[in-house]
Design a protein around this nucleic acid. Structure first.
Length: 424
RNA sequence: GGUGAGGUGGCCGAGUGGCCGAAGGCGCUCCCCUGCUAAGGGAGUAUAUCUUGAUCGGUAUCGAGGGUUCGAAUCCCUCCCUCACCGCCA
């Protein structure tokens, strides 16, 4: 959520900034509602003040043993006026709330213009795409021929967009998770956290998935507002919902491995082959809570933490900054890391690292006590994948494939695979 | 799932209809005293929002949401959560 004061005081400017992401702010509607809200609030609050003082007088009169009947009569009209005033104020406030919570974050000035991912700007490239002197296979064929990756049986037990991994491939998947967690905890100073994979609607509101993007989520039952997490960002970021953090605890850096569940509504026909886009996948997520002035630096550090994983795995990648049209709802700035996939002859997203500034913190009321002002102030939140495990597995399979269809194991993973050097 | 007890400020804890945004204690901040430590004295110390140049002040918030009442932390209803015991269970 944006600062209502900012939206209120200079809606034209906010609207202009949101243009970069192709969002049209209904300035007229906001101003109209704001004006209503203001007068209704002043009216309701003065009636409340009136009621409070009169009620106090009644209390005093009663204590003094006076007759309170005339006082009660005076207050009668006030009561119904107040009820009406509170009701209309409440309605307008709700309308405003709906409108405000539907406004995306303001992109940083550095965010390039553009509508689609084609307008994203490359800022970094590492490694060289391997040249194969034999016909390459994609991960689906590789896994199938090795007998280690099975989409058909997954379709039987559940449906499309699920996968079953067997044996050494399942083990490699697990080794990747272990490798990422180890690197982030030991080398990068994150503290590991294990969180629920089911969250309530308040948490999803806090990070910005609700109310606008409910169709992307798996909802459990209608009666209890529980959802499967679409990313660890939700439970981990909400660790500090409604909290005030001591300044000396900052920055808070967490790494969590969780499954992620996405309905993938609206992605029909995209990435239908293989395990690039699944309803269920696993991810190692990095989340930081930082002082406002440090969030940009924190984002660059976090991005680097994610990139290093690919470098250690020897997987070529490039990093892009997302253009205005491609950036997510809650983010002010996002860098995507894209890994090289030989079968597709292109780079594919494997991590998304964002600075949310105070957008999520405002929704969550996540604050820190600023020693300078001694007041609670909003934190900044920064997060990113470090990395998406399923896609990393795909990248390893395809980049490390051999002519005989077997798959070499990257050196850093070998100790976690019991010394195994090749799969198959 | 059943029964019972609870959810109050950074923490502990009092408060069963008005004098309660909330006693007392702890913690923290500032000041004084004490000239090592320890102790002692005084003041301050929730959040959001509106109004204001800033104060002053208004409003809301005692798990959440409704209700009763002139007036609710306090009474009623629903829900959530915690604890204890029982049941069930990896």
């Amino acid at each position: 959520m944006l600062d209502p004061k900012t939206v209120r005081s200079d809606p034209e400017r906010v609207a202009e900034q949101l243009q970069v992401r192709g969002f049209t702010l209904d300035v007229a509607a906001i101003e109209a509602l704001e004006n209503q809200r203001k007068s209704l609030q002043i009216n309701a609050e003065s009636l409340q003040a009136e009621r409070n003082s009169r009620s106090k007088n009644i209390g005093k009169a009663k204590a003094a043993g006076d007759d309170i009947a005339p006082l009660l009569a005076e207050v009668e009209q006030l009561k119904s006026d107040l009820e009406a005033a509170e009701k209309s104020l409440h309605e307008v406030q709700q309308e405003l709330e709906v409108l405000l919570s539907g406004i995306p974050n303001i992109p940083d000035a550095e965010v390039p213009p553009g509508q689609t991912e084609d307008d994203n700007v490359e800022i970094n490239r590492w490694g060289e795409a391997r040249r194969f002197d034999f016909p390459i296979q994609d991960h689906v064929d590789l896994g199938d021929k090795l007998g280690l990756l099975d989409f058909d049986v997954a379709a039987k037990i559940t449906g499309s967009r699920f996968a079953v991994m067997h044996g050494q491939l399942a083990q490699l998947h697990r080794a990747l998770i272990q490798f990422m967690l180890n690197t982030h905890t030991v080398d990068n100073g994150y503290s590991e956290v294990n969180v629920p994979f089911i969250v309530n609607s308040d948490s999803l509101y806090g990070t910005g998935q609700l109310p606008k993007f409910e169709e992307d989520l798996f909802k459990l039952r209608a009666d209890n507002e529980f959802y499967l997490i679409p990313t660890a960002e939700v439970p981990v970021t909400n660790l500090y919902r409604n909290e005030i953090v001591d300044a000396d605890k900052l920055p808070l850096k967490f790494v969590a491995h969780t499954p992620c569940f996405r309905s993938e509504a609206g992605s029909y026909g995209r990435d239908t082959r293989g395990m690039i886009r699944q309803h269920q996948f696993e991810k190692v997520e990095l989340v930081q809570f930082v002082r406002p002035e440090e969030s940009q630096e924190a984002l660059m550090g976090l991005l680097r933490n994610a990139e290093v994983i690919l470098e250690k795995l020897g997987l070529p990648y490039r990093t892009v900054i997302l253009c205005g049209g491609d950036i997510g709802f809650s983010a002010a700035r996002t860098y995507d890391i894209e890994v090289w996939l030989p079968s597709q002859d292109k780079y594919r997203e494997i991590s998304s690292c964002s600075n949310f500034r105070d957008f999520q913190a405002r929704r969550m009321k996540s604050r820190w006590r600023n020693p300078k002002t001694k007041k609670p102030e909003l934190l900044h939140t920064v997060n990113g994948s470090g990395l998406a495990v399923g896609r990393t597995l795909v990248a390893v399979m395809e980049n490390y494939q051999r002519e005989d269809g077997r798959i070499d194991i990257p050196e850093v993973l070998q100790p976690l695979m019991g010394g195994l050097t090749v799969i198959g």
